[in-house]
Write a protein that binds this DNA or RNA. Structure first.
Length: 479
RNA sequence: CGGGGUGUAGCGCAGCUGGUAGCGCGCUUGGUUCGGGACCAAGAGGCCGGGGGUUCAAGUCCCCCCACUCCGACCA
């Protein structure tokens, strides 16, 4: 019992202090470390491996839908950044500037990219000539810098890693289709790979990306019932292509500005899965992105044959393309159990002398803690089934959290009560005015999350001004 | 950028009215263990966040920085 106590003491329980619980996991599961650069975090091997797995899945999906990877300069001349007014307004306050090149002062200062719309436009200005070259479907994996005031691992840091997709199209409709297709791709990724349900929707004018005509978003609900914007997809119309003079000769032999999109998910998603699935024993990783999907723990490993038996299980699982590790270190089994629970490994396979006699092994699930004994002959099928079960269960739990904590309200007082109480998503009607949106922030303490793509089509009253309206909107406290 | 909290060994902390640094975990070596964070023994490890004061003497008192962290405002 005393040992169990020590076990829980390892991290702050989420009921006690959710924020501390979160940072405890980030550090103790060895995902990140702080660096000497204020506001910058180091992604450690285990944290980076999670991101790599996410990257790999997204990259494949993007290539399958015709996107090509490119690399743009990390520095943007100020004059280039300034060409589009709203973008400068949005990003200049948090840009990091380079003013020296070696020992010489630069004639023009350079911003470390906070986002690369400008560089892509600059490039397209040079290479685009005819509609036959369209669409151009580009993507780049890189990091960006935004001089954030306060930072938290994965959720907000001055540098973060992401991919940024940038596309240009011949027609507005094509670009809009692209924006929506990508939103679906992101939502699909979150649900199928991260076991994280999302609400798909459109941002209000107040919340949309600087310079965008429309911003689409996927919003997810964390275990503390706060909202996390998990991915965005923007439609720009021809605003940037006009500002940066990007043109092509159309089918009508006239010059046109292409229609543009951009979209991204970031390392923030690592934070999202921590807060969606994690528990008081540590991280809980969805199998699709877990760096180690199965940990094999030999019991009484110095007894003859145990290590060989364990290694055989590892090899068999590797042969069906699972990410497997065997821990034959001198640590005690109990220590290993706790350690890999902290790291969120979905399944643990134990094998010891007793199992060997019975030609079986023990499989423990990270999500439920449930242990089952499996005949050695059934290892592969049992593991595959259990991995799927873990994924399904994680999704079901997250979906339940989202559904149980999404409320339909008609007055701002109800929204306020929710926000000051347990929290959650409030779904109301909205008249569409900025005044009422600001009032919700002021009075109820929530920001608009999105106008869901799935609109009910009903009529109701705006919770602030009482005007009759049809738009459904989600409100919540956001990260 | 406003408000709070914290900086002492890798981590978590103790160190009272000032007197020259300690505990637990971890780490190293050897041995016994191994089905939920094992045990014994011997070790290694400190510019007490940085700078300035006060004092015979500062981890301790005063001032100024800096970093981390939480809560707001801004954002993925």
């Amino acid at each position: 019992m005393a040992k169990d106590q020590r076990n829980v003491e390892a991290i702050t329980p989420m009921e006690v202090d959710f924020a501390k619980w979160y940072t405890d996991i980030c550090l103790k599961a060895e995902l990140v470390d702080y660096s000497s650069m204020k506001g910058f975090t180091i992604l450690r091997p285990y944290g980076y491996a999670i991101w790599e797995n996410m990257q790999s899945i997204i990259d494949k999906a993007l290539k399958k839908t015709g996107h090509q990877n490119v690399a743009m300069p990390a520095l943007i001349p100020e004059s280039l950044l300034k060409k589009e007014g709203e973008l400068v307004e949005g990003f200049a306050p948090e840009a990091a500037w380079v003013t020296m090149g070696g020992s010489e002062k630069l004639e023009e200062r350079l911003a470390f990219r906070p986002t690369s719309e400008t560089m892509f436009c600059d490039h397209w200005h040079n290479v685009l000539q005819t509609y036959r070259q369209l669409p151009m479907l580009y993507n780049q994996w890189c990091s960006v810098i935004r001089w954030e005031k306060t930072t938290r691992p994965f959720l907000r840091s001055r540098e973060f890693w992401w991919h940024e997709g940038h596309t240009i199209h011949e027609t507005a409709q094509e670009a809009i289709d692209e924006t929506e297709m990508i939103l679906d791709l992101f939502a699909d990724f979150c649900e199928k790979s991260l076991a994280m349900p999302v609400v798909k929707g459109r941002k209000t004018d107040k919340e949309k990306f600087a310079g965008a005509e429309a911003t689409y978003t996927i919003e997810s609900m964390m275990k503390d019932r706060k909202a996390l914007q998990s991915g965005t997809s923007h439609y720009f119309g021809s605003k940037f292509s006009e500002a940066y003079d990007v043109t092509f000769l159309g089918r009508d032999n006239k010059l046109h500005h292409p229609f543009q999109t951009s979209w991204a998910v970031t390392t923030r998603l690592v934070g999202a899965i921590i807060m969606t699935h994690g528990d008081n024993n540590g991280l809980v990783l969805p199998p699709a992105i877990a760096p180690i999907q199965v940990i094999v723990v030999p019991i009484a490993q110095h007894k003859p044959g145990v290590l060989d038996a364990a290694a055989e299980l590892r090899d068999r699982l590797e042969n069906i393309d699972l990410r497997v590790k065997m821990d034959d270190s001198e640590q005690s089994p109990g220590w290993k159990f706790a350690q890999y629970e902290m790291k969120g490994v979905p399944l643990r396979v134990e094998i010891g002398p007793k199992d060997m006699e019975k030609q079986q092994c023990c499989i423990a699930r990270r999500d439920t803690g449930e242990k089952t004994f499996v005949p050695l002959a059934d290892l592969e099928s049992a593991v595959q089934t259990l991995l799927q079960d873990v994924h399904d269960n994680l999704y079901a739990m997250a979906e339940k959290n989202l559904e149980d904590n999404t409320f339909d309200f008609t007055s701002w007082e109800e929204v306020k009560e929710m926000a000051q109480g347990k929290g959650g998503f409030a779904r109301t009607k909205w008249c569409g005015s900025l005044e009422c949106e600001l009032a919700m922030k002021e009075k109820a303490g929530v920001s608009s999350r999105c106008m869901p793509l799935k609109q009910s089509g009903t009529t109701g009253k705006c919770p602030v001004c009482g005007k009759e309206c049809t738009t459904d909107i989600y409100w919540g406290v956001a990260y």
